[in-house]
Design a protein around this nucleic acid. Structure first.
Length: 198
DNA sequence: GGTCGGATCATCT
DNA sequence: GATGATCCGACCG
């Protein structure tokens, strides 16, 4: 398994290209002195100002919350969802073009006991509930709002090269949990994977 | 195994 | 003062 972090150039492409390319890559955190690794199995693209579902949609513009989306490709955009959960995005495209990929699910790879403890899962609870959902995976990996704007090619929050998923193994469907442009086919997941959120 | 509502808060009107 | 890129437990059948 290669451990090379994905370079900023990987993210300097449209979010519709980066989102499927992130499938199979490894999300690594070293937080609280503990290392946890998850394989990315589900993503969603948020394309730019013309995407009505984006936090940086034209009608919203640049605000304090979405500032990271206007930053350089390859940094994290972390925001609080429904007042309770944290959600992690990888910023894509170019500076001043606000676009990102939401990481929606991971398959637990390393530090499973740590993830289960962070999630408060009972022993009988199956592993598929560890990281199936954007709020769940951040909790499992210890990702919090303080990591907003963090470079994804260095600790404690890194995405490293894994095994890319071939095009025929990528399943494409509509994005989840949004009201605007809900039918745009910008959700990508590993076909048949047991750890996706739906 | 499906649907429903509560939790909880930063952000924006 | 309303809203939301969510999750979970309660309740029903």
């Amino acid at each position: 398994m290669s451990r090379r972090p994905l370079p900023p150039s990987f993210y300097a492409r449209p979010s519709t290209v980066v989102a499927p390319a992130l499938l199979g890559q490894l999300l690594v955190t070293t937080i609280g002195g503990r290392r946890t690794v998850g394989r990315i199995v589900e993503t969603e693209a948020y394309t730019g100002p013309g995407d009505p579902a984006s936090h940086a949609a034209e009608r919203i513009g640049r605000t304090a919350r979405n500032a990271s989306m206007y930053g350089p490709p390859g940094i994290a955009y972390v925001y609080r969802s429904y007042g309770i959960h944290w959600c992690l995005n990888a910023v894509t495209d170019a500076v001043d073009h606000p676009a990102a990929v939401l990481i929606r699910a991971i398959e637990p790879i390393e530090g499973i006991d740590i993830m289960r403890a962070r999630r408060g899962l009972r022993p009988a609870h199956p592993d598929r509930f560890i990281g199936a959902g954007p709020g769940r995976l951040t909790q499992a990996l210890g990702i919090v709002g303080g990591l907003d704007g963090h470079r994804l090619d260095r600790p404690p929050l890194t995405i490293v090269e894994g095994e890319p998923v071939s095009a025929e193994d990528v399943e494409i469907g509509p994005r989840i949990g949004i009201t605007h442009a809900a039918d745009w086919p910008l959700r990508f997941c590993v076909r048949g994977n047991l750890f996706v959120s739906r």
